[in-house]
Design a binder for these strands. Structure first.
Lengths: 336, 336
DNA sequence: TGGTCGGACTAGAACGATCTAGAAGACTAT
DNA sequence: ATAGTCTTCTAGATCGTTCTAGTCCGACCA
């Protein structure tokens, strides 16, 4: 049923309109060099035949593909937000986005290859896990922009959020509420976990406070585990590696009858969907995904079009205060 | 800096290896017709030059693109699971997947066009929102498979989960635990909300019970709202439209001091990531995303390769029992 | 009158692969 | 020796575009 009829080509339109292929091409891409009257006629016949340019042939000929390759991880809700924003920014800049997911059994390298195969002019990789060398290798072929990771060598662009500023913001906020026993639950092996942990450590020391780091991870379960540990010697405030971890921590506290923020303040990171839920109302450090995405796309386009050298863009995150942090009642008593 | 040198072509490899382009082509795609010794030599020089076939040219020539277009919604975590599984199944079948997201400001129609432009041989659309007519229009050009929606006319394939069976399963399970006052919190305008609601209604009646439907929606907040309403006259069991809604319901109960499953049993739908969290442990109806994805990909490939007529595949969901449903202590007393 | 200019249009060569048809050489069968 | 068959390899057409280098023709100017 419904035998797929061959889709019409430039040639078909040209014949039907009684002109040359070249002229149809000119008309279709709105280039100058066609009389208004013929232009109309050609457009009309094209519409009638349901003509639709074959992007493969088009791209093959004109070396430009106007394609931006975007590698994301299908299991990260936060990446989805970025994808969303990237689409918008790219189309505003006159580019298309080719998506490629990293999934179970589909490593980053594979995702990248696919994108290069379809002719992406630049690569945007969200939180790349490849080594600096591997990234540099690709960067020799096309501009590569690393998103959310900045230690990528100087052949690769990076757009990231200032983790140092984010953690500092969190600590300052808690300090201003009178907290002094502030603990960090880290992200284990997750990207940017190291930087957040180290910033926490140095900032605490700088303020003359004792840093305490509880091992964690990027998921709810990791937070749960850390929460158990914390209960043995409850601090007055906790800075989690991310929102999901914070959720786990809060859940473990709740199960133990510890109330938030009365007994302990909790701060998340990412300002994700969860943080905004009415029954969570988690205060969190926002990296502002749409802005990051726009910056990454902008960077990629600039690299393609201009001959700018690679560089890095760092955006400053901001605090979104909700209901999980509160003033310490008996401020300034116990310090370590 | 690192001027992008033109990427090597078949011609370059051919010259370097001292053979014809055609032979290189044969070797590169592993076709028969080359002596083992030359094959090795060609492969080696190709590797040395960093040769990589240009998919645009390749696809232009060979009418086959071996590409499956997959349209998903970037804001749906459940879709991400499907994307994951689809990749695996497609590559097992020798196909590639081209992804296109529906996002804010990027309607489904746009996503589909992009995929057709790159030459997808079939379209898999997760929970399509287009009308039957619009879908049929595309189906005239390429096979279209609708995933998670089955009222799509008979030109379009569909792969869906049997909502009727899912709800029946849920009701039967609760009945077997002695529950009789079972309420359904529906999904509002979400896809397949209607079918689940109607099945609930008829199944309840069939068992001689009074159906009670509380309006809801697909999100946590919707569940919260429904939870408030339910508290006025607490049933012994609730079947939520999906897991996120169930989460909201449970949260509202928890806030009111109602304990689960002692005071009330709650059943979710989707068996999503959330349901599995150790502090949630939600019993849920699983649609088994990987299986659905595999079926959709399989269907698409069959349509492309064979000349099978469109049809629909329906998979039966199953119950995953965790800790939110329990035996009713005083079974069989009140029945509305 | 003739030369130059510019607008509208076209023929044919790219782009980088695949595919068809056939050539060259080695081997076997008659 | 001749014909037939395999295997290995190649020349050249082809996919549907865009690009380059024209051609044609009327208008304008000295």
């Amino acid at each position: 049923m419904t035998e797929q009829q061959r889709r019409p080509t430039l040639m078909d339109v040209a014949e039907a309109a009684g002109v040359s292929r070249a002229l149809v091409s000119i008309v279709m891409r709105g280039a100058p060099g066609a009389a208004e009257s013929t232009r109309q006629r050609v457009l009309e016949t094209a519409l009638q035949l349901g003509y639709r340019a074959d992007s493969r042939a088009r791209l093959l000929r004109s070396s430009r593909t106007k394609l931006l390759g975007l590698v994301f991880s299908s299991s990260q809700p936060f990446h989805a937000e970025i994808v969303d924003a990237a689409y918008a920014e790219a189309s505003a800049r006159g580019y298309e986005i080719a998506l490629s997911a990293v999934a179970g059994g589909r490593p980053e390298a594979r995702a990248i290859e696919t994108l290069l195969d379809v002719g992406a002019e630049a690569l945007i990789i969200i939180a790349p896990t490849l080594s600096m060398d591997e990234l540099a290798l690709h960067a020799r072929q096309v501009p590569v922009v690393s998103l959310l990771r900045d230690d990528v060598g100087d052949l690769v662009d990076s757009v990231s959020s200032d983790d140092h500023a984010g953690i500092s913001l969190a600590i300052d906020h808690l300090l201003s509420l009178g907290h002094r026993r502030i603990v960090h639950v880290d992200g284990g092996t997750a990207v940017s976990s190291d930087k957040r942990r180290e910033t926490y450590r140095t900032e605490m020391v700088r303020h003359g406070l004792q840093p305490v780091i509880v091992p964690g991870g990027p998921g709810e379960e990791d937070g749960m585990g850390a929460g158990q540990i914390l209960q043995a010697d409850l601090p007055t405030a906790v800075i989690a590696f991310n929102d999901r971890s914070a959720l786990g921590i809060m859940e473990s506290f709740r199960a133990a009858g510890i109330s938030i923020p009365t007994d302990v303040s909790v701060l998340g990171y990412d300002d994700s969907h969860f943080a905004k839920l009415s029954y969570v109302q988690l205060s969190s450090v926002s990296q502002d995904a749409p802005l990051l995405a726009a910056a990454a796309v902008g960077r990629a386009v600039d690299r393609i079009e201009g001959s700018e050298p690679p560089g890095s863009v760092v955006r400053t995150p901001h605090l979104v205060l909700r209901k999980t942090t509160a003033q310490l009642p008996d401020a300034g008593l116990n310090s370590s």
